Simulated assay, not measured.
Amino acid sequence: MSNAPTTPPILVSSLDLERIEALLDEPDRRHFPGAQTLRAELARAEIVEPAQVPADVVTMNSTARVVDVDAGEEYELTLVYPREADGDPGKVSVFAPVGSAILGLRIGQSIQWPVPGGRLRTLRIAAIRYQPEASGHLHR
Rank of each mutant, 00 (worst) to 15 (best):
G118N: 12
A64V: 03
V98F: 07
P116W: 04
R121V: 11
D68V: 00
A51M: 07
Q109S: 10
K91D: 08
A4W: 04
E41R: 14
L105A: 10
S93T: 13
E73C: 00
D70Y: 03
T59H: 06
S14I: 02
V66T: 01
A40K: 02
A134H: 12
G118I: 09
R140Y: 11
R140G: 14
P27E: 11
M1Y: 07
Q109R: 09
G72E: 00
V48Y: 01
G104W: 01
R119L: 08
P89S: 10
L103G: 03
L24N: 13
P132K: 08
H139C: 05
P33Q: 11
P116T: 12
E76M: 00
V66R: 00
D86E: 10
E74D: 02
T63F: 03
S93L: 08
G87C: 04
I111Q: 10
H137D: 11
R140T: 12
Q112D: 15
V66Q: 04
L38S: 09
L138C: 10
L138Y: 13
D28G: 10
G90W: 02
Q36M: 07
V12F: 01
L15F: 14
L42K: 05
L42W: 02
Q131E: 14
A127T: 01
A96L: 09
D25I: 01
E133P: 04
E74S: 15
L17C: 02
L23R: 09
P89Y: 04
I10L: 15
I102W: 11
S135K: 08
G117Q: 09
Q52P: 03
F95L: 15
D86Y: 10
Y81L: 13
I47V: 15
V58E: 08
P132F: 02
N3E: 09
A40M: 01
R30W: 05
L103N: 06
P54D: 11
H31P: 01
R140F: 05
A101D: 02
M60P: 01
R119E: 07
S135F: 07
P8N: 14
P50G: 11
R106K: 14
S14Y: 03
Q131G: 14
I107V: 15
V69C: 06
A55I: 03
V58F: 04
V69H: 05
V67E: 02
Y75E: 02
P89C: 05
G136D: 08
L23D: 10
Q52E: 11
V69S: 09
E76T: 09
I128E: 05
E41I: 05
E21Q: 13
R140K: 12
L120F: 10
V98P: 01
R124L: 08
A43G: 12
S110A: 14
S135M: 07
Y75I: 00
P50V: 04
E84G: 00
I107K: 12
G90V: 05
R30A: 15
I47R: 00
V98H: 11
V58C: 06
D88F: 04
L23K: 07
L103Q: 03
H137F: 15
V67R: 14
E76P: 00
P114D: 02
E133A: 14
I47G: 00
G72Q: 01
A43M: 03
A55E: 13
Y81E: 09
N3A: 12
I102E: 12
A126N: 09
D86L: 04
R29W: 12
K91S: 06
H31A: 14
N3C: 08
E73A: 00
R83A: 13
V92D: 08
I10M: 11
S110E: 15
D25A: 15
A127V: 02
G72M: 01
